[in-house]
Design a protein around this nucleic acid. Structure first.
Lengths: 265, 265
DNA sequence: TCAGATTTTATGTCTATACCTATTTGGGAC
DNA sequence: GTCCCAAATAGGTATAGACATAAAATCTGA
């Protein structure tokens, strides 16, 4: 089975252009790398106290500001925890695992893989929010929305089915958009600044309708990605994208999450 | 259906203890918040040039270092892109969406929800890697591993089925661990510093065996999470966790990813 | 008109210093 | 011993100045 990735890993996965000659790193970068190495290699174990700012000053013969910048960055990134008077400590991985998923735009994804992409709008109609959906979105049930059903097709094979509602209050411009040229997700990307989203992923068995649309067998397992987006606290869009389970995977890049650890106790 | 979350959102989702009296923010925090607001609200659109450092110095009557710290942080977080001589520009959202999934430790997750958790070890045995798995992990096929099959039970209901291999080379201590007390994932968390992992999520139909183990119907959709972990480039563990599709969701926190945008062209 | 050299500009990094603040620690009063 | 206060400590933030560097803008000469 050729597995198609519907999402690619993020930055760190890029094929780094082999830094043959490592370009001159700044002093603070050097220090930061040194510390990261010691933490990541386990030399400085979680909970361990690391040297304080003046010790680093001595070690690297630099000013306190430089050390401070490094330690602040590491603290922001969650690798260390800093406490006044007590010192800086290696944080401990907080979770069994964390992952960073980047779900790309269909068209862009297709282009990146050299595949032919097209979409079909199955339905596009102004509606009032159904009771159930309104409740689940915590909105008034009479909110005006645009409902869009869309099929994403890759190399003439149905690739995903999208069921979306868009707030007509919040995204007025959408009234004049047919989505003939550009699929709703892509269109929204360019027309709405967004700031908040919530995702869920689940697995479901395809019912007869869905199976028909996606050209798969009834009861086949499907991956369902739901995303709700708000902007400045107001609802923008809610979308449910269903992928045939066979041949699709979500792929996530590593991301290490560190959390606070009571040190020294 | 009561949906059980097998993963909780990360930091930002914590129920912030309502900062009734917003505690005095530092000057740099104030500046940073101002800029973030302008970007997130769309006032400063993607690609737009934002004031340069000296303009901010004038606006906030502060030193350049202060402004520089703020802009550097924003740049690290990917909200802006900085270019020498050209200035700083609002980055544009690079992807349709990005998400940050945090998959927590079973036991900790259960405790956090006030549920009873237990696990059953179905198999624990030293093996040599099968050809297929060795290939997929890009390892030699004779690598010594410990194979562990484990069932996670929440409130007396099978919650997940785990199929894991652990490198005996890399994690020698695992030879003496029965996993009677602590499930493998949790044990590894405490015994292996880790630094690299790769995840995939897919949906599958349960076969007869799996259905029997998880107490679900054959062909029921399941969510399968695979995670491979390395440490310093060497393979540590590969695990596949299968959740019954009904009643399980992976939940991810928002994470906005901005990327570079050619400005001004 | 255009390529190449030069200037200008905005950012990148670092230093040295200053003052503030949370927290721990040690000492003194009880 | 126990409680409370004061001193010491480590980090948090800010300033002003300096030099470096990449790249856009401008100038210059053929």
């Amino acid at each position: 089975m050729t597995t198609r990735s519907i999402a690619a890993a993020a930055q760190a996965d890029l094929p780094e252009p082999a830094p043959a000659i490592a370009q001159a790193a700044s002093l603070s970068e050097t220090i930061q790398r040194d510390i990261e190495d010691k933490i990541m290699s386990g030399k400085w174990a979680p909970g361990a106290r690391i040297p304080n700012e003046s010790e680093f000053m001595t070690e690297y013969k630099c000013s306190r500001m430089t050390v401070n910048r490094v330690l602040s960055r590491l603290s922001e990134r969650g690798l260390i925890v800093r406490r006044r008077k007590a010192g800086s400590f290696v944080a401990s991985p907080r979770s069994d695992s964390a992952m960073f998923l980047q779900i790309r735009d269909f068209a862009r994804e297709a282009a990146g893989q050299g595949r032919r992409y097209r979409h079909e709008i199955l339905l596009r109609r102004a509606e009032r929010l159904s009771d159930a959906r309104a409740r689940s979105l915590q909105l008034e049930r009479n909110q005006q929305v645009l409902r869009v059903l869309c099929l994403h097709v890759l190399d003439d094979q149905p690739n995903a089915y999208e069921d979306r509602v868009i707030s007509l209050d919040k995204v007025a411009a959408v009234r004049d958009e047919s989505f003939d040229e550009v699929p709703p997700g892509t269109w929204l990307l360019g027309h709405v600044p967004w700031s908040e989203a919530r995702h869920t992923i689940k697995a479901v068995n395809a019912d007869a309708t869905l199976a028909g649309i996606l050209g798969i067998e009834e009861h086949a397992a499907c991956l369902v990605l739901n995303r709700r987006t708000w902007h400045q606290g107001e609802f923008v869009t809610d979308v449910e994208i269903t992928y045939p389970g066979a041949g699709h995977e979500l792929t996530g890049e590593f991301s290490s999450t560190f959390g606070e650890l009571a040190p020294n106790k």
